[in-house]
Simulated assay, not measured.
Amino acid sequence: MAMTDPLGDMLTRIRNGQRAKMDSVLSPASKLRANVLEVLTREGYIRGYSDDASGKHPQLRIELKYFEGEPAIKHVARVSKPGRRVYSGSQEIPTVRNGLGITIVSTPRGVLSDAEARENKVGGEVLAEVF
């Protein structure tokens, strides 16, 4: 059966992996997923990611990050879903936990965090929120 929300699936794999205290998780590879992982790496929520060609299909190995035994990501949620897309202008991008978290936005200039999108004065589709 086809997956209806690939990005939501990747975020769920990250959430479940951190609850199980895993070092890394695997997710099917795509450009959007890689771009979202790049933002999470830049912002310090994951240690990094790499391509994993050990299986039949290309996958991404996501290295999870912990701080004193606690996961670096306390909450991760999909905002814009296939059934209800959420778009926002550069000035209306929501802040997460008064700026302690990030909002991941897909813009014409690529996938950016909320601070980068405001700095570049671009809006777009609000993909997820992380803190």
Rank of each mutant, 00 (worst) to 15 (best):
K21E: 14
Y45C: 14
L37D: 04
L37G: 06
K31R: 08
L32K: 07
L40V: 06
P28K: 04
R13H: 09
Y45H: 11
A34K: 13
E43Q: 14
R19A: 15
A20G: 01
V39S: 04
M22Q: 11
P28R: 04
R19T: 12
A29V: 07
A34S: 06
N16K: 08
L32P: 06
S27F: 10
S30N: 09
A34Q: 10
R42F: 11
R19I: 12
K21S: 14
L40F: 03
M10Y: 02
E43D: 11
R19D: 03
S24E: 11
L26E: 09
S30I: 01
R33A: 08
M22I: 09
N35S: 11
E43Y: 11
S30T: 07
S24M: 11
L37Q: 04
R15S: 05
D9W: 00
T41K: 14
M22L: 15
K31C: 10
P28H: 07
V36N: 01
E43C: 11
A29K: 12
D9T: 08
V25R: 15
Q18K: 06
T12K: 00
D23R: 15
V39I: 02
S24D: 15
V39A: 01
A34G: 02
L40E: 04
V25N: 15
D23M: 10
L32I: 03
Q18Y: 02
R19E: 04
L11R: 00
L26S: 10
D23F: 15
Y45P: 11
S24R: 15
V39T: 04
G44T: 07
L11N: 02
L26V: 10
R15I: 00
P28D: 09
L32R: 06
I14S: 09
L32Q: 07
R42D: 11
E43K: 14
E43R: 13
S27W: 09
M10L: 10
M22F: 12
T41V: 12
R33Q: 06
A20F: 03
M10W: 04
M10R: 05
Y45K: 14
D23S: 13
T41P: 07
A29I: 05
M22R: 12
Q18H: 05
S24I: 05
E43I: 13
A29T: 10
L26Y: 05
Y45D: 08
V36W: 00
S24V: 06
N16P: 09
L11H: 02
N16G: 10
R19S: 09
I14L: 04
R42G: 06
L32D: 06
T12S: 03
G17D: 09
S27M: 10
L40W: 04
P28N: 08
M22P: 06
A20K: 01
D23N: 14
G44R: 11
D9E: 07
G44A: 09
R33L: 01
M10P: 02
V39D: 01
M10T: 00
D9I: 05
V25L: 13
P28Q: 05
T41M: 08
V36I: 00
R13N: 02
L32H: 02
V36Q: 00
M10I: 03
N35E: 12
N35I: 01
K21N: 13
Y45Q: 13
I14E: 05
V25A: 14
V36H: 01
V36T: 01
L37S: 07
L37M: 12
T41L: 10
